[in-house]
Design a protein around this nucleic acid. Structure first.
Lengths: 137, 137
DNA sequence: ATAAAATATTACTTCAAAGTAGCATTTAAT
DNA sequence: ATTAAATGCTACTTTGAAGTAATATTTTAT
């Protein structure tokens, strides 16, 4: 019920960048502002670039900027880009074959929790978060 | 959004035992039925014993049986006994100081998910799960 | 052309959760 | 008493996520 560090970072990066959506951000600046380690952030930026959310500009005066609008990037898309949603949407007891038809002992209890999770992550975009009113990124 | 293996095992063990609530279960039997490794299950049994859910009977013909009724053991109690609920109830982005008053960027999105999680785990007991109608433990 | 400042990639290290091994302890049946 | 069959404890190993190091590549300013 907590996201992995990897997904945390990915969301924090995009939310932070969305504050000033058309700006170009260098990795150095993001590292300083978000307190994420150098190499780890860079690796995530590559994933986010490959997913098409942002684009990277190489060379001197390069950096990253949005390719898609922050209102088009769903939270689930971000998780999928960096680690996959499977871990978050699977059976709570880890059974591969768990469904309404063939449920585990926790299934009916877990469904409402998962439903609420999926609702949040598949209907909300980066833009829908409290980007402007908040100080924690 | 998936429980740790440790919590999975703890819940599965108690649910399985609750099918025949007054029976004495040996570790060997539970290991065979639940396909949990020997030493790991035994360690968990010790935690569950210390938490007062079950009691262990040492010596030949020993084993484990319920001390509390399965209807008195809340799911959150089980998690607390083996690893603690903090991991599951904290801020989704990992901020220590995240609250309604001082929220992170995900806070308002995450609250309904966490609320649903807490509702399930603090209001349901082992007995409330689908113990009798299900084949997966 | 060269240097500077940025991103990209690959391989390595660290850490905590998960899992394993071995031995100590307890108790009932014989 | 002895043995067998169970639990209890402590230390070790493995594994995957997280984090780090070193180097290559790209592009602009001079």
């Amino acid at each position: 019920m907590k996201l992995s560090n990897t997904s945390e970072y990915a969301l924090r990066i995009l939310c932070f960048m969305a504050k000033d959506e058309n700006r170009l951000y260098s990795a150095k600046y993001l590292i300083d502002e978000l307190k994420i380690s150098d190499k780890y952030l860079r690796r995530l930026m590559t994933d986010l670039t490959k997913a098409g959310f942002i684009t990277s500009i190489q060379g001197r005066d390069g950096g990253y900027k949005f390719l898609k609008g922050s209102g088009e990037i769903y939270l689930a898309d971000v998780i999928n880009a960096v680690e996959g949603m499977d871990k978050y949407t699977g059976c709570s007891l880890g059974f591969c074959e768990c469904s309404d038809k063939n449920p585990c002992v926790m299934h009916s209890t877990w469904v409402p929790v998962r439903t609420e999770f999926l609702k949040a992550f598949t209907t909300k975009t980066i833009k829908d978060l409290d980007i402007m009113t908040v100080t924690k990124y």
